[in-house]
Computed example of a mutant assay.
Amino acid sequence: MAMKDRIKERSIGLFERKGFSETSIQDIVEALNVTKGTFYYYYSSKEQLLMEIHKEYIDDLLQRQRRIIDSGGSQKDKLKSVIHLLISDIARNGDSGKVFFREMRHLTEDNATDIKKRREQFRHNIEEILRHGAESGEFRKQLRPDITALAVLGITNWTYQWFNAKGELTADELAEIYSSIVLDGIHTRNEE
């Protein structure tokens, strides 16, 4: 693994455990058994490192989300796939997810604005799925894509706080539960 990737990986673990503010560059270099010069060769500051972590995280999600949207299939299948994408990502990259959701407040204003735009694009892409689904009759016509997209992100993104990939539920099982809640609701239907 390249040194830049090692710095990033070790920093993610430290930021997740100690928090961004409580983790010093000295903590990072000591964990890697390298000098501060090595750190500064790759990153001009701890904030630049945090920005790179954020950009890589959201850009990867956006690319995979775009592949889902551009694939064939129903809007329902696309929405389920986006839910699976988010949950499987939290299961696989839990520490990165925690840093992404928890530590954005430490980015400079310009960097935070950049990341917010990318996050908004992810949300708008979900709205697009919902809008197309309502137009095609897959979803209710009166559906509010903006509010529904926020609801989808709310239940999926909060998962990073409590989900244990080695726990009772697998990521796929949890994604199916969430998909059912979003797509079918929680009411019972009287079948005649």
Rank of each mutant, 00 (worst) to 15 (best):
N125S: 09
R17F: 02
L174K: 15
Q121H: 05
K8P: 03
M3D: 02
V29H: 13
K117W: 03
N93R: 09
K55E: 08
G94V: 07
M3W: 02
L130I: 10
A91D: 03
I28V: 13
N190F: 14
E138Q: 06
E192L: 10
K8L: 11
E138W: 00
N93W: 04
E22Q: 10
Y178W: 01
M51G: 03
S136H: 01
S24P: 10
I177N: 01
K18T: 08
I155V: 15
I186Y: 04
V152P: 00
R105E: 13
K98H: 07
E30S: 13
L32E: 08
T113Y: 03
R92K: 15
H106C: 11
R123Y: 02
I115E: 09
E120C: 01
K80E: 09
S74P: 11
L86H: 12
E191T: 13
I90V: 10
H54E: 09
I177R: 07
V82N: 00
L61P: 01
G72R: 06
N33A: 08
Y178T: 05
H84C: 11
A112L: 15
G94N: 10
G167T: 04
I25C: 04
G72L: 10
E56M: 04
Q121M: 15
E22H: 14
G185F: 12
D184W: 01
Q65Y: 02
R17D: 10
Q161R: 13
K8M: 07
R17H: 10
D60W: 12
A175W: 06
I177K: 05
R118Q: 07
R67L: 03
Y160I: 14
T148D: 02
E30I: 12
Y43C: 03
K166S: 14
Q142K: 10
F100E: 02
F100M: 07
I155H: 01
R102L: 12
G185R: 11
R189H: 11
Q48I: 13
E192Y: 06
R144P: 06
I186V: 12
T170S: 15
I7P: 01
K98S: 13
G167K: 15
L14P: 04
L79R: 06
I83W: 06
D59W: 10
E47H: 02
A91H: 05
V82H: 11
E135R: 15
N157P: 04
D5E: 12
